[in-house]
Design a protein around this nucleic acid. Structure first.
Lengths: 245, 245
DNA sequence: GTTTTCTAATTGTCTGGCATTTGAAAGGCA
DNA sequence: TGCCTTTCAAATGCCAGACAATTAGAAAAC
């Protein structure tokens, strides 16, 4: 692990990179303790604050955790799917909002990916997954639900669908696509009629999964995509009209 | 933006969180300049090193960039898909290796997601995408190619397939699934026969995309999945036998 | 043998300072 | 006036040293 003090990059970034590489290529293994900040400072020939900045960079990516006290120090984290979720969702959300991704594009990606989960979910979904979906459907039918709460419930429903595939890699990759849509969905005001239509399709999805019917699930998802796209189009057109008046 | 000095969490983590929230909810907009480190230190009632640690955390997530000099400072980054790719790939790779995800599980997720792209890619792929795929197929047929180079070419081929959908959200989400598989694939030694079989299926995929045939593309991808799974199984079994002797 | 106290190690934070970079203003020159 | 050079000030990058807070283990007291 060497760094170049004449490089244009920050020393702390170089040090963070060196340690990250060591973690990725297996030189540093999970739960291994890194040298203390003072030792790292000596090793890299920099000051302790610089080492600390490097360690904070790694901590921000959940690659390490720190612990105070006599036997404390920085330890290589076992990067869990649970820990990676929020990061993934924050990044995806910002990508959508900062790059002005069209609702249409994000929606298309989301439903394409969900359809990919459908056959697996139809095969493996547990009664728990079904129960979650039914509960969310019930909630979505409640009158007086705010649009935001409706969207949140929608996300929970789709999360259950994806988790039904019992493949953590899929769940992780999908988390970004599904959750990041929520801010976009929140721009939509749902009429009672569109809500009931969505609840209807959600019911069809749950039914299809219950009878282990992957194809039917995919078809229902496609209907839901069309419905969502149409709804978004009409809402955005109405807003555009209102703005131009 | 307030922080609680009595919280168990690090001050730098709290400050980073406060600024991150401001970026996510739009209080801070792209390319906006944050207050200087000294001003932030005063605002949060902490010292400059603490502020710096917070800023490094944000920089590690590409949320801000810093610039030295008279008009320098920390600026909110426009998080681009390109910048998010490496992060996504590093995280996905570590998730697979650290959680001992089975080859089978990762492979299943990857091909499920790729099949999701197939119909869109069949519809929208440009001649450029096709040319990339054909070029990689050609490379894969070259004798004397190392297993690693073969895998890298395989990844490039599949990247082109995914990019063919012309949906940046899909490309981003898939990058993790496709690239993170590479270390797992590198554990496989490809015989000449298995290589030619893979090249054959790749050709079928390219052909199907060329004639805008989504279903055929999906079917070819399913064959490829089966082929890959079978190959992996035999390789791992051989290794297990060799180890037990 | 158990509880309490002490101690050493380590991270968390602060103060103060210097080095480096960089844009912009001030000044000089044609 | 217009262009070039110099100077300056603001900001980040980095360092040295110190103290506070936390924690586990060792030592001491009971």
């Amino acid at each position: 692990m060497k760094i170049d003090p004449d490089s244009p990059a920050d020393l702390s970034a170089q040090i963070a990179g060196a340690i990250r590489d060591a973690i990725v290529d297996g030189t540093l293994i999970v739960d291994e303790r890194l040298p203390s900040e003072a030792e790292l400072a000596e090793h890299f020939n920099v000051s302790r604050p610089t080492v600390r900045e490097a360690l904070k960079r790694l901590a921000a990516q959940s690659l390490i955790r720190t612990q105070r006290g006599a036997t404390g120090g920085a330890f290589v984290n076992r990067l869990s799917f649970e820990a990676a979720y929020p990061q993934q969702i924050t990044t995806s959300t910002l990508l959508l909002s900062m790059n002005a991704v069209k609702f249409e594009t994000a929606c298309e990606a989301r439903y394409a990916l969900e359809r990919a989960c459908a056959p697996l979910s139809a095969e493996r979904r547990t009664p728990d997954h079904l129960a979650t979906m039914r509960a969310e459907i019930h909630r979505q039918g409640q009158p007086g639900l705010t649009d935001e709460a409706f969207c949140a419930s929608d996300v929970a429903f789709h999360r259950a669908l994806v988790d039904g595939a019992c493949n953590p890699v899929l769940s992780y990759q999908l988390a970004g696509a599904v959750e990041a849509m929520q801010p976009l969905m929140n721009m939509i005001t749902f009429t009672a009629r569109s809500r009931s239509r969505i609840v209807e399709i959600h019911t069809a999805i749950a039914d299809a999964l219950e009878e282990h019917h992957g194809l039917k699930t995919q078809e229902a998802l496609s209907s839901l995509e069309q419905e969502t796209q149409a709804l978004a189009t009409s809402v955005f057109e109405a807003k555009a009209r209102a703005a131009s008046e």
